[in-house]
Write a protein that binds this DNA or RNA. Structure first.
Length: 419
DNA sequence: TCTGGGGTCCTAGGACCC
DNA sequence: TCTGGGGTCCTAGGACCC
């Protein structure tokens, strides 16, 4: 059996851990720039707040309904996530951290154990150790464990744990699970499947597999097997990333090359830093810029460019240089830009860099970057910058309702007075 | 005024090779 | 009248996930 453990309304729950006055109250968490809703507590869901709702359109509704709004605080969520995962990893020999708020655990060989009891114990231990509520679904395949978890979440009377351990239970669940809620079926596939008369997971398992292969590729076929109880997916190891990105919307429109250059250079250095963290170099860099897609009253422009690098690198200086080069080739005067991004691809291990015929094959700026990373680690992100990042400018993301970083910043650690 | 960010995988079709 | 066959690699685009 696999278990899928998923944190309930994760970001919203993180906000509550150190601010228990919001327990039982509706809260939402906004994306970067306080853009749109990306997490909701159950109370907020019940009040009809939709995922992805743009915050500025719902200001009034938030106020009227007494919904508490938070800017996203990724430092807090990341740290809470690793605490949850550490606790979970004690329960099974293998764990796959599938995302920031969920993990698969492999319980094969546990046939003489009481999985229901183990599930309940996981919930208790995680809640006690972190304050984060989780739900647990057990099933013979990963796709079914996803379904079991959904059932544990949807039916509170189950106590947060659902053990899908018999063909009857699987059948019942597959009848209940709507096709659009199946893990791996997105909007497009759901529409096409419904047109074929497939409305739930059971219909899908009984479907002609030629149609599935043709319209959903081998991924669809695998999913069909998974839902029929045939195991095709195993736990996956943590692999180094194949691409790394840093993309951001701006708090207001930018129109000059220099403003964009400052942003793009900063994004490039962030990519470089992430590369060094996983000991990779990149061989390709992509830069894009675009105007605000939502504005009908402004001229639209969107362009991206991909550049092959002459040598693999993870140096801030090198990547900044190539990013500026790329930006020069796509920047056009006369537009108001809303977003830019840098993506690095074709990653290779730092040690396996190809020796160059005409270039010095020594990895560039290795020592320098090591020093930069050390300084930034001690004194804070982006403390050491490139001159092209315009030191006088302090670029700010809109984060008007940011909570303290309760667990990752000494200044924000709570002080408790005991009488 | 104000609408997120970061990933993965698969396929078809074109270019190219011998 | 007649114009091969068998491959590989790369890219763009589409789908999905959190």
């Amino acid at each position: 059996m696999f278990a899928l453990v998923d944190c309930n309304n994760f970001y919203a729950s993180c906000q509550r851990v150190f601010q228990p006055q919001y327990n039982g109250k509706p809260i939402v968490v906004l994306s970067n720039n306080d853009g749109c809703v990306i997490a909701r507590s159950n109370e907020a869901k019940a009040l009809g707040i939709k995922m992805g709702a743009p915050a500025f359109k719902f200001e009034k509704e938030f106020a009227d309904k007494g919904i508490n709004v938070f800017s996203s605080n990724y430092a807090l969520y990341g740290n809470m996530s690793s605490r949850v995962m550490t606790l979970l990893s004690e329960f099974a020999p293998e764990i796959e951290v599938y995302s920031v708020d969920e993990a698969f655990l492999d319980f094969s060989g546990f046939s003489y154990f009481d999985l229901q009891a183990i599930g309940e114990r996981m919930r208790k231990v995680v809640y006690q150790g972190t304050g984060i509520p989780v739900c647990v679904g057990f099933a013979p395949t990963k796709a079914l464990a996803k379904a079991a978890n959904r059932i544990a979440k949807k039916f509170p009377q189950l106590g947060g744990v659902y053990l899908m351990d018999s063909p009857e239970k699987i059948l019942k669940a597959m009848k209940w699970l709507k096709i659009e809620d199946v893990w791996g079926i997105g909007r497009q596939h759901a529409i096409r499947l419904q047109a074929q008369g497939v409305y739930n997971a059971l219909d899908f398992t009984m479907m002609n597999s030629d149609w599935i292969k043709k319209n959903m590729s081998v991924i669809g076929l695998r999913l069909q097997k998974e839902l029929s109880g045939i195991r095709t997916l195993e736990l996956e190891d943590i692999a180094p990333k194949k691409s790394i990105a840093c993309t951001r919307s701006f708090d207001h429109n930018y129109s000059t090359f220099d403003e964009l250059k400052e942003r793009v250079v900063t994004y490039a250095t962030i990519c470089a830093e992430k590369l060094r963290k996983q000991n990779s170099c990149c061989n390709v860099i992509q830069v894009f810029i675009h105007t605000n897609f939502f504005r009908e009253d402004q001229p639209k422009y969107s362009k991206s460019i991909t550049i092959d690098l002459p040598y693999p690198t993870n140096s801030n200086l090198e990547l900044a240089k190539f990013a500026i080069e790329a930006l020069k080739r796509i920047y056009k005067d006369g537009y108001s830009y809303k977003k830019a991004g840098v993506i690095v691809m074709e990653l290779t291990p730092e040690i396996a860099k190809q020796t160059m015929l005409f270039e010095n094959s020594e990895p560039r700026h290795l020592k320098l970057m090591e020093a930069v990373d050390k300084l930034n680690k001690s004194y804070g992100q982006q403390k050491v910058k490139l001159a092209a990042q315009d030191l006088s400018k302090t670029w700010k993301m809109k984060r008007e309702r940011l909570s303290p970083k309760f667990t990752t910043d000494v200044k924000d650690i709570m002080i408790i007075f005991a009488k």
